Simulated assay, not measured.
Amino acid sequence: MKQKYFLLIGLLLIVLAGCQGQGATMVLLDEEISFISISESNGYGDINEDILYQFNQQDQVLFFKHVITTASQQDSNVELSHPDFDIMVNYGEDFPVHAIHLWLGEEDESSTLMYMVDDDKTTYITTPKDTNELRNLFQK
C-alpha cells in the first residue's frame, strides 16, 4: 500500500514538474482539499506519519493552500537533508496526497518548501509574512 501511495505521488510530481519553469510557483490538484496534516520531519525524502497537527477548518486549509501555491521557485541555501516538517495535502480517498517538506524560517524570514518526491530538488520560497503566520499556527 505504501509503495502504491509513493508511486502515485511520484507520478503526479513528475507531471507537475514538467509543467513548471523558472520563477514558477508550486501547484496543487484542482480538487477540494479535505485537510492538511503536519508532522515533524524524519529527514529528506522520508514522510513521518506521526501527525502533530491536522487542519481541516476552511480558513486553515485556505491559508495552507495560499502558502503553497504562492511560494515561488528560487534557489535556496537550506540543508536539504533536514527539513523541519512534512506537510501532507489530503484531497480524499480518490486522489493522491501531496507530500511537501517544509524548512520553517525564523521570524520575518522566508521559509522553504519542496515536493517530497522531487529528483531535481527544486525549492520554493514563501514570504516572510507567511512564515510568521506558520510559526504562530505551530505554536498553538
Rank of each mutant, 00 (worst) to 15 (best):
M1C: 06
K2F: 03
F6Y: 15
G10M: 03
L16F: 04
L16K: 12
Q20A: 09
A24N: 00
A24V: 00
D30H: 12
S34T: 12
S34L: 07
S34V: 09
S37G: 11
E40T: 15
E40V: 13
N42F: 01
N42G: 05
N42E: 07
G43R: 04
G45F: 00
N48I: 02
E49A: 00
I51T: 15
Q54L: 04
F55D: 15
Q58F: 02
V61D: 13
V67R: 09
I68A: 11
T70Q: 13
A71N: 06
Q73I: 05
D75W: 08
D75P: 03
V78R: 09
E79C: 13
S81H: 10
P83G: 03
N90V: 08
N90D: 14
E93P: 06
D94S: 12
F95W: 13
H98K: 08
A99P: 04
H101G: 04
H101P: 02
L104E: 02
G105K: 01
G105S: 12
E107V: 12
E109T: 15
E109M: 06
S111Q: 06
L113K: 04
M114N: 12
M114G: 03
M114R: 09
M116T: 13
V117T: 08
D119C: 11
Y124R: 05
Y124G: 01
T127E: 04
P128I: 05
D130K: 00
E133H: 03
E133Q: 14
E133T: 03
L134C: 10
L137D: 11
L137Q: 13
